[in-house]
Design a binder for these strands. Structure first.
Lengths: 360, 360
DNA sequence: AATTGGTTCTGAAACGTTACGGTCAGGCAA
DNA sequence: TTGCCTGACCGTAACGTTTCAGAACCAATT
């Protein structure tokens, strides 16, 4: 008896059918308590650990798990509060449904899609991935339901997100009404290739991260509406996402154009870095410089940042619910969650030219 | 052709053996480029999504994923920076090895162990689970390697952790040398049953969370060494882990015994709450009250907390490495990572009685 | 002509389970 | 007695893949 015990060997030992042993574990009402007791006892004696989960999955066509794809370096997901909130919400939804959450390993460097094909899951959630990512393509090629959150834009796939354009427009209008006309933008990566520096209009418009694209284009339209030539507005991109990057990007903007009165950042993390850089330069916020963010993470709100709050936890929950409640529901569904402008203490009217020279 | 295509149907369509189709995907060098091209093309035409991951797992006896068990409410893992650091480290290790990370869904209320049996994984990491948890028992009953981190104490199982006793002793000696003799303790949950309040010696010693047990007993021994009767030292326990709980526990201690000169908390999160409570009461830290933590999370270190720093990220990495590099290595291995006493600005000698009455 | 060596492909045997459609004995009412 | 129902169990057929030992073929060497 070297080989590990299986359901079949257990059945043989007991002189019953495999079905009966299976029932002992899965449908106790299908056999007499006495026999069930004997089965379980013999199992213990033979060291049978219970039905093999993989074999069960093969037969039932259910893996009991949801795959999560995020192409970013994993550190990103665990360090960015917004991503973390999403992850938590998704995890809660899975937990509530008794489903596991399978984090798909992705090596951002190599385009190795094998892990996507190897994942034994009943569906995928895709978050923060560029439209043209090969991993995304691999997910879509798998015959399981998929829900996309925020980032990848995919025709005909269930989706949860926010209205980035409307939210950004609201923020832009706020700044415009305050009187800002000379603004600079700090944004996250726009495509899969690294570009730490200025991003021209061309690049902005062809961004493969459509959330960034939507926010930039909303800004462009809003400011164009008051006569600002968007092509002249400096937009700085950072590939990695952290406050250090935000600070560096802010420095780059302020070095290039000291006349800027507002720095619009497409995430709170970047904005917090920009705030730090302003402080380092002795610029008072908001008197000398207005800074805004996006996301509404706790740390930023606590710091008084003017930003857009989005319900990250709910996004995760909604994604989970959409995926797990995926019956036959005709056309793809879409859930757009509400956002809210949070006016903090980092935005104010720009100083006039006089004030710039002679103090407040 | 209603049924979805399988490897077999594809082989039949092509008039080749299943082996050949399998090789087309897994061992391209085993067949001519021309045939491979034909296989892949036909696959595309028939909508064959590539080898089924579950069937493959059944055959190869490899799931390509590591299970992570934490019995706590999932929010805990995503909100506690220490747990998060561990999670990140583990995720990095998995990612590096191309393994998925399967978060096992656990309903802390119901003792439903089924999810553990259903998880298709090659091994388990168990973190922050009481010794007597049924989920832990379920994991151990599965015939896969297991690594335990910190929390559960299990004979004969690979383990990574820190020397809680030594670290706590170091901290205690620091407080003792500063002159503290009237101390109170705030600790995390000691067992599976909820007890938000004082924990007597009995309960301390029989704690099912051995990390807490070790820290408490180290404190007891150290203070006993200078004549403090540990039975008289108030120890307050909190089931949930958050700074609000830390604050409430601190309040409970200070209400009961205003003479206390130091609050020793077994986690930074609790300590941050204790600091907030002290502030609320107008107690100056460290002049009026010394507060210490444990973990060395960024937020606490930034706040100047005196604490023990432990390498949470490395713990996760080590757990992953141990599990994934699990060959035949005789007896169970153990990795004990180093800790470091971080002396911050929240600890100082206690005020003398005179100072208490007449000010510094 | 026989041998060797290499490539390319095949057939059959697992891998361990659950779903489905039964059988069979016993009880119960008509 | 007959017919019907119910509880308890069984046999077979998947589920879709990989693995392993070889067969068939061809070219190059002895």
């Amino acid at each position: 008896m070297r080989r590990p015990a299986t359901l079949a060997s257990l059945a043989a030992e007991l002189g019953v059918s495999r079905t009966t042993v299976s029932n002992a574990y899965n449908r106790p009402d299908q056999l007499s308590p006495e026999l069930r007791r004997r089965v379980l006892e013999t199992a213990r004696r033979l060291g049978y650990p219970g039905p093999d989960p993989v074999a069960r999955s093969l037969r039932t066509r259910k893996a009991g798990a949801v795959g999560l794809l995020l192409t970013e370096n994993l550190s990103y997901a665990f360090r960015d509060p917004a991503a973390l909130g999403f992850l938590e919400g998704l995890a809660m939804a899975c937990e509530g449904a008794g489903q596991g959450l399978h984090l798909v390993p992705v090596n951002p460097e190599r385009e190795d899609v094998a892990a996507v094909h190897r994942a034994g899951v009943d569906g995928f959630v895709v978050y923060s991935v560029p439209d043209d990512d090969p991993h995304l393509a691999a997910v879509l090629s798998r015959p399981v339901p998929t829900v996309v959150c925020d980032q990848p834009r995919v025709e005909g796939v269930d989706r949860v997100g926010i209205d980035d354009r409307a939210a950004t427009t609201q923020l832009a209008e706020r700044l415009i009404s305050l009187g800002h006309r000379k603004v600079g933008v700090v944004c996250m990566r726009l495509a899969r290739d690294r570009n730490d520096g200025f991003a021209g209009i061309e690049r902005q418009q062809s961004a493969h991260f459509h959330v960034q694209r939507a926010r930039l284009s909303a800004l462009a339209d809003a400011f164009a509406g008051v006569g600002v030539v968007w092509a002249d507005v400096p937009v700085v991109e950072r590939f990695d996402h952290g406050s250090a990057q935000g600070a560096a990007a802010a420095a780059q903007l302020l070095d290039t154009d000291p006349e800027l009165t507002a720095l619009i950042c497409t995430s709170d993390i970047l904005a917090l870095g920009a705030l730090a850089e302003a402080r380092r330069r002795g610029l008072r916020v908001p008197q000398d410089l207005t800074v805004t963010g996006f996301d509404g993470i706790t740390e930023a709100v606590r710091a008084g940042l003017t930003t857009i709050r989005q319900p990250v936890l709910d996004k995760g929950k909604a994604a989970g619910k959409l995926l797990l409640g995926a019956g036959e529901h005709g056309r793809p569904r879409q859930i757009i969650l509400p956002t809210e402008l949070v006016v903090g203490s980092t935005s104010a009217p720009p100083r006039t030219a006089e004030e710039r020279w002679f103090g407040p």
